[in-house]
Design a protein around this nucleic acid. Structure first.
Lengths: 144, 144
DNA sequence: TTATACCGGACCGCTGTGGTCCTGTTTGCC
DNA sequence: GGCAAACAGGACCACAGCGGTCCGGTATAA
């Protein structure tokens, strides 16, 4: 498995759409454009806004816009925003005391290189890479 | 997060212990040696045996033994054994039809490089690497 | 013959996730 | 000045997956 959550998947799709359109897009508009349910899109955008990946603009004619180009947004950042810090095992981020087998655990502390490898792999891929060859407004802007 | 299951963690610990001891070890013995509950160790070993990573020997004086040295056992194999095939999104392994937004999904099929990157990173690390500098029987064999 | 230990299940509580909804608050437009 | 659009920040609930335990069956050595 090693599966990441659906929310993260949605986040990537929404960000890709946001990047393709450019400018300010509303949550309902993005929902229609991506096929994801509107409340879910709103939830994702709120989380992303919380982590300064997008910026919300309130009021009528409001919406969301990217705070940096997709090319400067590594996948690891998005995953970390939605799911929290990237670490394969609980051992790593919880520090000490949480593992009852600390004394006899032969693997103690050796997960670090693994985590780093994963992190590096994920940091080397940007949302722009996932969004395809810069799909520049190939869709109608606020399609129904 | 991107967290892998505890079972996988246990599997690595148990395998490391099995490799350090060498020969045939019983589930209760490994449980005592690792600090993991015995039924859980048994469960993990059963799964590993199912995937030909260890071999079970029934009867009195039975137990489990490694089917290949830890050095030839990449982490990806263990993860795949416990959690199933490694794939970050449901899109990938489910093929078609499972994603209702196939038509509008701009990310369609672009997760493959990501999955491959993760898989490679995990395949490059063996259990021997995680088990430390070949801890050869530094503990008493079947310690209580 | 008996004790040991694996084998293959079923079983259950819990946590986290996915998804929805509701009540503010802000802002543009008529 | 009033109204509608749209974000903000929650609470809320159903469901699936995971962690963990237990039981009956079978093989094998002493």
């Amino acid at each position: 498995m090693l599966r990441l959550s659906k929310l993260t998947d949605y986040a990537v799709v929404v960000l890709a759409r946001l990047g393709a359109e450019g400018g300010v897009q509303t949550a309902p508009g993005l929902a229609a454009g991506t096929g994801v349910a509107e409340p879910t899109v709103a939830k994702v955008l709120k989380i992303l806004a919380h982590h300064d990946l997008v910026e919300g603009q309130r009021g009528a004619r409001g919406g969301y816009r990217l705070m940096r180009p997709l090319r400067d947004m590594p996948l690891s950042t998005v995953i970390a925003a939605i799911e929290g810090p990237i670490a394969l095992t609980a051992c790593v981020d919880n520090g000490f005391g949480s593992c009852e087998a600390e004394g006899v655990c032969a693997v103690r502390g050796r997960w670090d290189p693994v985590n780093r490898a994963i992190r590096d792999a994920l940091a080397g891929i940007t949302i722009a890479d996932l969004a395809g060859p810069t799909v520049h407004a190939s869709f109608s802007a606020a399609a129904e």
